[in-house]
Amino acid sequence: MCNLYSNTMPVEAMRQLFGVSPAQDELGNAEPLPAIFPKGRAPIVGMSEDGTRWLKNSHWGFVLPQVSKKTGKPIQPKAVNNARDDKLRTSSFWRKSFEERRCLVPATSFCEAKGRKPATYVWFGVTGEGDRPPFAFAGIWRPFVGNYGGEHRELVTSSIVTTTPNELVRETHPDRMPMILQPEDYETWLTGDPDMAFDLIRPYPASAMVVHQQGEDLKSDRAGL
């Protein structure tokens, strides 16, 4: 799973890497994000009906309404920020978004915690040029309109697809890892039919990944700035 990642790419770099025109960029003068947590601001790349790509801020986590077990009244919704690959086509919570609203989630590293009290935070990335080569997670998105945190909200929400871990990530998290897409697969993930998109789901090669840093209380990848 993934509950913390970073995206320290400048907006212009994201537009160039993911083929988004300035007219379709809704981020504005967004600052680098060295720590993105569930319910936080998460830029995503999606596809319009006319085939153009857009870049928007999303709320990381599909909103799942909840009610109090004691009173039966609505309480703060839960943000479901990871979508398991084995649930994408079987769960009504994920299926329509996987079929119709796939997205790219730009990132420069992601973190998994190992152990407790204290936990060791391990920041992973991909190999390539520069200190923190950019990449994209496979994601899905959907709109949310309703009461959230005591006020009416209209949100674009996103979730990151997770799959089985490769050999590198397994040492820290033995069950899941976020699905990193190969650049040549971006278009298929965004526009291919569900079968084509599902066939892309696999662990990213461990040989093409690195550990950027690790240690106690490293809840931000500011070293990537």
Rank of each mutant, 00 (worst) to 15 (best):
A138N: 05
E49D: 13
G192R: 08
D221P: 00
H59Y: 14
I44E: 04
T120F: 04
G128V: 02
W141M: 13
P34N: 06
S92L: 11
L64G: 03
D193F: 06
C2W: 06
Y121I: 01
P118M: 00
I44G: 04
T172E: 01
R153G: 11
E151C: 03
E154S: 13
G130S: 12
P32R: 00
G19H: 10
V161H: 03
V211S: 02
L104C: 04
P10M: 06
P10K: 10
M14A: 13
M196Y: 01
K78R: 15
D199T: 02
L33M: 10
Y186R: 07
Q182I: 02
M177F: 12
P34K: 08
E112Y: 01
V156M: 14
A23F: 01
T90W: 13
K39S: 15
P118F: 05
K39Q: 15
N57D: 11
P118D: 00
E184S: 13
S220V: 06
F124K: 09
A107Y: 00
P106V: 04
R15W: 07
W60H: 03
D199E: 12
P165C: 11
R116I: 04
K117Q: 09
N147I: 09
Q16S: 14
P134N: 04
Y204H: 07
P134K: 10
M1F: 07
G40Q: 07
E12S: 12
I180L: 09
A83M: 12
G130E: 13
N7W: 08
K39A: 15
M179K: 04
I36G: 07
P203N: 11
P133D: 07
L4P: 00
L218H: 10
L181V: 11
I44Q: 00
I44L: 10
F18E: 05
V126W: 03
P178I: 02
P183I: 12
R116S: 15
P77Y: 06
R15K: 12
E99R: 10
P77Q: 06
L4D: 01
G61R: 07
K70E: 15
E184Y: 06
P10V: 02
A107W: 01
M14C: 11
R176P: 00
S220A: 15
D175M: 15
L4E: 03
H59K: 09
L190F: 06
K56M: 05
G150F: 14
G46L: 10
G46F: 10
N82I: 08
A13C: 04
P134M: 07
K219W: 13
M177D: 01
E151T: 13
G125M: 07
G130W: 11
H212I: 14
Q24N: 15
A23L: 10
T188F: 03
P32G: 04
G192K: 06
F144S: 01
G149K: 00
V11E: 00
F144W: 02
R153W: 01
S58W: 02
W60T: 01
G146N: 08
D199W: 03
A136H: 02
T8Y: 09
A35D: 09
P194D: 11
R202G: 00
A35I: 04
T8W: 10
P178K: 07
Y186W: 14
A113P: 00
K114M: 11
G28C: 09
V67T: 15
Q76A: 15
K39H: 12
Y186E: 11
T163E: 11
D195N: 13
G224A: 12
